[in-house]
Amino acid sequence: MFSQLVEFIRAKYETKEFIPLHAPVFNGREEEYVVDTIRSTFVSSVGAYVDRFESDMAKYTGAEKATAVVNGTAALHTALILAGVQQNDLVLTQSLTFVATCNAIRYCGAEPVFLDVDLDTMGLSPLATSQWLADNAHLDSDGTCRLKGSHQAIRACLPMHTFGHPVKLDELIEVCKQWNIHLIEDAAESLGSLYKSKHTGTFGLLGTLSFNGNKVMTTGGGGMVLSNAELGFKAKHLTTTAKRAHPYEFFHDEVAFNYRMPNLNAALGCAQLEMLNTFVQAKRKLAQQYKSFLQHSELKFFQEPNDCKSNYWLNAVICEDRAQRDALLKATNECGVMTRPIWTLMNKLPMYQTCRSDGLNNANWLEARVVNLPSSVIQELA
């Protein structure tokens, strides 16, 4: 079966050379825009392409405001600060995620609480979140959600849309409303994904995107904070060293961050965004071809959840057990076809082993079985 899968993937990408997991595609106006930026000399954090990229991304996602930053981690850090996350607060999130999600929580001096995921989304489970809060939290007299005993504030809930598949947002929103917790979406992997016809990253108080080189579209390095207009204004101020506007004076009114995206990266982003619908269309077609090829195999292809339109950033299969997972990884990588396991659970990493968590039954089950397959855009499928 594994050799047949390798042959199938090689036929799709029409090469006998090494096949990466996800490579960028530059077939639009990228070179034109980047050269234009170089010639303008505005290659740093001030320039027309930064403003354009923010405006275009807000329009694409339906957010009131989009604020461009240097990477997705900076976007997460900024969003958490804007949501009021402080030293010793708790933030509910999933253990099955990329490390940037919980690193950003730590940057605020807060502590992640790792809760289980749903098997049909691989994202934070509303049921697990609700159950943990019922067992461990209470609302104080001013309506702040606090941990029983220590009275630490539980300030935010940070789900991640795993591999571009949206979590159960309606249910999670209700849980957050019940407990007065801010919802912040880590939509780093889900640009182009819709939940009930609305773009991910626009349901919570804030959302974040990533444009790393391995994402659906890239700016080389970059990220975005999605928000309402008021928080968007604050996000821009906070990520530009809190400098007050003035023709020549330098005055900064709070401790802030130098997180603004350079104009050079934004130029690349503007060109990539023009191609994004084409990229997503091609990726969804590839996903359907994987699904058809694997339908009678021992490997279960992971499909988009109900009421969702996923970008299928990274296609995934679920193996029967860890032994089959390891055999698949070995066979494909030895043949020059890159596959990878899902992330090691965050609660198993040395710096997060002491954090609170629930049973994480589904997360542990998925960690032992999930493998990502090559998912780069095939232009002929667009």
Rank of each mutant, 00 (worst) to 15 (best):
Q289D: 08
S292I: 05
K291L: 11
A104L: 09
D89K: 00
L238M: 13
L127N: 12
A188Q: 07
L366S: 09
V175D: 01
H252T: 13
H151C: 11
K215V: 05
Q288A: 06
T339N: 04
E31Y: 02
Q152F: 00
A83S: 15
F203D: 06
C270R: 00
A58E: 02
D135G: 09
K300R: 11
W179Y: 12
E320K: 14
V370G: 02
Q289I: 10
A83C: 10
A153G: 03
A382Q: 05
F163G: 03
H182A: 15
Q4I: 00
A256R: 00
H246T: 03
C102M: 10
M160H: 11
I154K: 04
M57S: 08
R244L: 15
D170N: 13
L194D: 10
P159W: 12
E298S: 11
L21A: 02
N228W: 10
P262T: 14
T144C: 05
P20T: 00
E304C: 09
L206W: 11
P24E: 07
T202Q: 09
L139E: 06
T218D: 07
I38E: 11
A110T: 07
A110W: 06
S210G: 07
T121N: 05
N333A: 10
T241H: 02
C308I: 03
D170T: 14
S125A: 12
A316D: 03
R322G: 01
A323W: 01
L115P: 06
F98C: 06
L90Q: 06
G232N: 07
A245F: 02
L273H: 10
I181G: 05
A23Q: 08
S45T: 15
R29G: 01
E111L: 13
A75M: 06
V280C: 08
P350F: 10
A11G: 08
P24I: 05
A229K: 13
N88G: 06
K291W: 01
L360Y: 10
W313S: 09
H151K: 10
V25A: 15
I9Y: 04
A66L: 10
T97P: 01
Q87S: 11
Q178K: 14
S197Q: 15
A137I: 10
E64I: 02
L127K: 11
Q353E: 14
G204I: 05
C270H: 08
T240M: 03
N265P: 04
L158R: 09
H165M: 14
H22R: 14
E254A: 07
K198P: 01
S193I: 14
T101C: 03
L209W: 02
Y290P: 07
V255K: 03
N347K: 12
V371G: 02
T15F: 09
H252K: 13
Q324I: 06
E7S: 12
L90D: 05
T129P: 00
A242G: 14
E17F: 03
V377M: 08
F98Q: 01
K309D: 10
E171Q: 15
R10E: 06
G149D: 11
G207A: 07
V85Q: 03
R260M: 12
F203A: 13
L264N: 02
